[in-house]
Simulated scan of single mutants.
Amino acid sequence: MTTVLWLLGPSGVGKSTVGWRLHRLLDRGSYVDADQLGLCYPSNADDPENHRIKSSALGALWPEFKGSPLIVSGFLNTPGEARLYTDRLPGADITLCRLRVDHAELRARFLGRGWLPGHVDQALDDADALERADFADFTVDTDGRAPAEIAAEIRERWAA
C-alpha cells in the first residue's frame, strides 16, 4: 500500500517548503505541490481554486506514485475538498497533516513573499476556518520554527 501525506494549511503557512524538506529528509518517494497541478486560468466560477482540475491531474499521475511514499502539499478548506483528491487515490493510506501558525507570523510570512499582499486577510480567514473545521489527522504548530525542524517532527509522527 502506498502511504500519502497531505500537508494542508492556509496560504503562507509553509506547506510547499516543509513538503520539499520532508521529501528530502525521507530520501525516497515523491513530492507533489497540488497548486502546480492546477495552474489553469481563468478558473471556472463554480471551482475558483481549480480543485477539480488538480484532483483529476493527481489521479492521472497516481499510478506512477504507487509503491513509495507520496507527499502532497496543497490547500484544502473542507473535508469535501479533501475527498475530491482522496477519492482519486485508490488503495492509498492517506494522512492529512495541518500546519498551523499564529496570525502575526502568518501575516509576516505571507507579506514576506512580496506578491498578492491584498490576499493576506483571506489567508487569515482560511486559517480560522481550518481551525474550526479541524478535519486533519494531526496538526503541527510552526510558529518560530525552521522548516527542517517541522519536517523532522512530521517524519516522526507519520508512518511512511
Rank of each mutant, 00 (worst) to 15 (best):
M1N: 01
W6R: 08
G9L: 09
P10M: 14
P10C: 15
P10Y: 08
V13G: 08
G14T: 02
K15I: 01
K15M: 05
T17D: 08
T17G: 05
V18I: 13
G19D: 04
W20Q: 15
H23T: 02
R24Q: 13
R28I: 04
R28Y: 00
R28H: 12
R28E: 15
D33Y: 03
L37Y: 06
L37R: 11
C40F: 09
Y41K: 12
Y41A: 13
Y41Q: 14
P42I: 04
S43K: 07
S43C: 12
S43N: 11
S43E: 12
A45H: 01
D46W: 02
D46K: 01
D46V: 07
P48M: 06
E49R: 06
H51Y: 07
R52A: 08
K54W: 02
S55M: 05
A57E: 09
G59V: 00
A60C: 14
W62R: 00
E64F: 07
E64D: 09
S68P: 05
S68H: 15
P69F: 05
P69Q: 11
L70S: 05
V72Q: 12
G74I: 02
G74T: 10
F75D: 10
L76K: 02
N77S: 15
P79C: 04
E81W: 01
E81L: 06
R83S: 09
T86L: 01
D87Y: 01
R88F: 01
D93F: 00
D93N: 02
I94E: 00
T95G: 03
L96V: 13
L96K: 07
C97T: 10
C97G: 13
H103V: 13
E105D: 09
E105Q: 14
L106N: 03
R109P: 02
R109C: 11
R109F: 07
F110A: 07
F110G: 01
F110T: 07
F110D: 05
L111Q: 09
L111R: 08
L111I: 10
G112A: 05
G112K: 05
W115F: 15
L116K: 14
P117C: 14
P117Q: 15
H119Q: 15
D121E: 14
Q122L: 06
D125L: 10
D125A: 13
D125H: 06
D125I: 05
D125M: 06
D126R: 08
A127E: 07
D128W: 05
A129L: 15
L130C: 12
L130I: 13
E131Q: 11
R132S: 12
R132F: 03
A133I: 03
A133G: 02
D134S: 07
A136D: 09
F138G: 13
D141M: 11
D141L: 13
D143M: 11
G144P: 11
P147L: 01
P147Q: 07
A148S: 12
A148K: 10
E149A: 12
I150Y: 03
A151W: 00
E153C: 09
R157S: 12
W158A: 11
W158Q: 04
A160H: 13
A160Q: 04
